[in-house]
């Protein structure tokens, strides 16, 4: 078993521009091997929070600690490329300064090695995201930061993309922090969910958070219930009266079943 190695710590992190703070008093710790997902309504400060972690956005208050020498792989929200710039996937990856073999390998890891010589302007939404993730991987990141990685990807592609992110975490043992709107999909591929609305409303394991009153207040009863059903499907079953009973042995083949005891 690996020791937990801390990659990022935020202490009371606050960012304000002119008016009220965009993020307010955020405390957060991210360890190697963790997948942390930030969810929250529009304008909740999600992007500002990860930009602080990336050191693109300066904090107005509080502290941030990054593990010295940690390499960060960043997958931005949407890459809008000027069609006037001729660019192949190969060239785009090699602009990291990594050797060609490493770039090819990274592209294979995200399952799009056939695109190596393609023009970056002719990629579909899902292909573009995989190329962007490959580019982040090529740099051997300790921490992978993704801003809505499934945006512009069709629904089947989205599930596959979150699967990929989890697989990559297992292979590379890096830390992952991402923003997502796809509550249903992301719940299965994350260790910790942070519900952000300027401050952290609630945070915890995905199967716990949907019962949290703060979560229900932010996202509404309906969303919370639909998520709750989604998880409990894996963990336990309901009797005809709605009472909770323990799931049978089969359910324990699911990955999130080791949380069973604490549930």
């Amino acid at each position: 078993m690996l020791m937990t190695e801390c990659l990022v710590t935020l202490k009371n992190a606050t960012v304000r521009f002119d008016g009220p703070p965009v993020i307010d008093g955020i405390n957060l710790t991210l360890n190697r091997g963790d997948i942390v997902t930030i969810i929250g309504p529009n304008g909740a400060g999600k992007t500002t929070l990860i930009k602080s972690i990336l050191s693109i956005q300066k904090l107005s208050g509080g502290e941030i600690w990054l593990k010295p020498g940690a390499r960060i792989g960043y997958v931005p929200q949407h890459l809008i490329l000027q069609p006037t710039l001729p660019l192949s996937v190969r060239r785009f990856l090699m602009l990291t300064g990594e050797p060609e073999a490493r770039c090819r390998e990274a592209l294979a890891q995200t399952g799009v090695s056939h695109l190596f010589d393609a023009s970056i302007h002719h990629l579909s939404g899902g292909e573009k995201q995989r190329v962007l993730i490959a580019r982040a991987l090529a740099r051997n990141p300790d921490l992978l930061v993704l801003d809505e990685p499934a945006q512009g990807v069709d629904i089947n592609g989205q599930a596959a993309l979150y699967d990929l992110i989890r697989t990559l975490r297992d292979q590379l043992q890096c830390g992952v922090i991402m923003i997502s709107h796809d509550l249903h999909l992301v719940m299965a591929a994350t260790d910790q969910v942070i519900c952000l609305n300027q401050h952290i409303c609630c945070s915890g394991r995905p199967e716990d958070i949907s019962a949290d009153p703060a979560f229900i207040e932010t996202f509404g009863q309906q969303v919370a219930e639909s998520l709750a059903v989604y998880h409990h499907h894996h963990n336990h079953q309901h009797t005809l009266h709605g009472d909770v009973v323990a799931g049978d042995g089969d359910a324990c083949q699911h990955e999130d079943c080791h949380s069973h005891g604490t549930h």
Partner: peptide, 17 residues
């Protein structure tokens, strides 16, 4: 050259790198 090209493609990505 490499830095100029990278900031042209994506400024924040260039900054992170």
């Amino acid at each position: 050259w490499r830095g100029l090209l990278m900031t042209t493609i994506h400024e924040e990505l260039a900054r992170v790198e």
